[in-house]
């Protein structure tokens, strides 16, 4: 069976750093997703995700991204544009997402494709809320994830209407 992982990463205690996690929360609230889509709140973890990410047909990562673009800008990076595979080792004492992806590559369990949907952070202050600018882009980020899923052949209905 096809397995597509939607992975939200980031720290929800640092404002816009948590956009990835907020986006997947919103996604799960708004849409009924079919079983081949696995949604993971990765937070800031590393190797714990190895099993969930191994041999995925596609991984969609939602994260805060420093792209040098305007604050709150949304960027989409696909496969080889995703720098994680090319980066030097991130840190001598921390395994992050890119190390996990590099590890999957090394053990031959890499995903069939990777899409990053990223948002340039406005604020990284200690807070559990997104900045108003990034908050305003949240529906768009969720729509982009849904569009990406549809493009991958996933049948998704329209969003679940909010309870009155």
């Amino acid at each position: 069976m096809t397995r597509i992982v939607v992975l939200g990463v980031g720290n929800t205690l640092l404002s816009d750093e948590g956009i990835g996690v907020r986006a997947i929360e919103q996604l799960q609230q708004d849409y009924d997703l079919p079983p081949e889509v696995v949604v993971i709140d990765g937070g800031t973890t590393g190797m714990e995700m190895l099993d969930d990410l191994s041999n995925a047909d596609h991984i969609i990562i939602v994260d805060a991204v420093r792209s040098g673009k305007a604050p709150a800008a949304i960027v989409k990076l696909v496969d080889e544009q995703v720098p994680v595979f090319f980066k030097t080792k991130l840190s001598p004492h921390q395994i992050g997402l890119s190390d996990v992806l590099a590890t999957l590559e090394f053990i031959g369990e890499q995903p069939g494709g990777v899409t990053v949907i990223g948002v340039e952070p406005v604020s990284l202050e200690t807070s559990m809320s997104l900045s108003p600018q990034v908050e305003a882009r949240l529906p768009e980020v969720v729509e982009m994830v849904v569009a990406e899923l549809r493009q991958l052949g996933v049948a998704i209905g329209s969003s679940v209407p909010e309870a009155a």
């Binding site: 990463v9 980031g10 720290n11 205690l13 640092l14 750093e17 800031t44 994260d63 805060a64 991204v65 420093r66 792209s67 040098g68 960027v75 990076l77 720098p83 994680v84 090319f86 980066k87 030097t88 080792k89 991130l90 840190s91 992050g96 997402l97 990053v116 990223g118 952070p121 990284l124």
Partner: peptide, 12 residues
């Protein structure tokens, strides 16, 4: 803490 993806591929 923080987890910002660096799309510019800075040396880390």
């Amino acid at each position: 803490a923080v987890h910002v993806l660096d799309a510019e591929g800075q040396p880390v």
